[in-house]
Design a protein around this nucleic acid. Sequence first.
DNA 1: CACGATTACTTGTGAAATGCAAGTTAAATT
DNA 2: AATTTAACTTGCATTTCACAAGTAATCGTG
Lengths: 136, 136
Amino acid sequence: MSKKRPAAWRSGCPLNASVEMLGDRWSLLILRDMMVRGYRTFKEFLGSDEKIATNILAERLKRLEEYGIIAAKRDLKDGRKTIYTLTAKGIDLAPVLAEMVLWAAAHEKTGNQALVRQLQRDKEQFLREIKKRWNE
Amino acid sequence: MSKKRPAAWRSGCPLNASVEMLGDRWSLLILRDMMVRGYRTFKEFLGSDEKIATNILAERLKRLEEYGIIAAKRDLKDGRKTIYTLTAKGIDLAPVLAEMVLWAAAHEKTGNQALVRQLQRDKEQFLREIKKRWNE
DNA sequence: CACGATTACTTGTGAAATGCAAGTTAAATT
DNA sequence: AATTTAACTTGCATTTCACAAGTAATCGTG
């Protein structure tokens, strides 16, 4: 029942650690939703374009929390809701997401041009804004 | 038998495109091996620390080629070998890998400190060197 | 306070991906 | 000609994923 994380990484390479934490088809999209769109609840994540299944979303949120990338706490105003937030570790993923967005936008036909142009114009400022927003 | 790539992405978001191409536990490690270590053959990839299985490696190489991230050609000196190289699209992934390495190194206990320090000292020069090396 | 709606999950089940071991083919080396 | 090497392929057990349905706690409304 309870999933165990591996006690140690497959190798000591930092890239391997990243891949073991984030190398799947959903984790980075959840973080995008938090970072760029300001999503914070289960239901909001479910509403994203990619249509994640509820059991997968629940499992990924738990994983990300175990890895210290996000934090979960009850909503004080509405006890049904869980509020998910980025930790410092999670906020530090912004440059990774930014580079992945720029790469795909440069080589594939993609939408979301507002975000892409903003990144192309001034990536550093974009990253500063995300940090600032989350440190409030 | 023959795997079909999805005709269209799950969504138009560029991050989703990146995740669909690279969001698994092996693709980025193969690219790391090419980019950082200079590996170019099936056997070299097999020798990496993370111990990929031969069928998975074959499938991933095919995928990466289909996506235009790497190119495969026969070795003219040794007809048994296939030489895998990065395309321009593949070389452009260097910033993504660099940010993932820096992130993991900042938040996890990892090895490969030589690479990490080099990136921390001067990421831009590191990226220039990779480009230069691959454009020869 | 009863009752329907909402939120965040959990469970069941079939399909697909993964991992391991072994086998195959073509080309080079001895 | 026989052996070795490189790059796969195949078979099979295990794990993960995806879809649909169900459930428990909490909330808003009459």
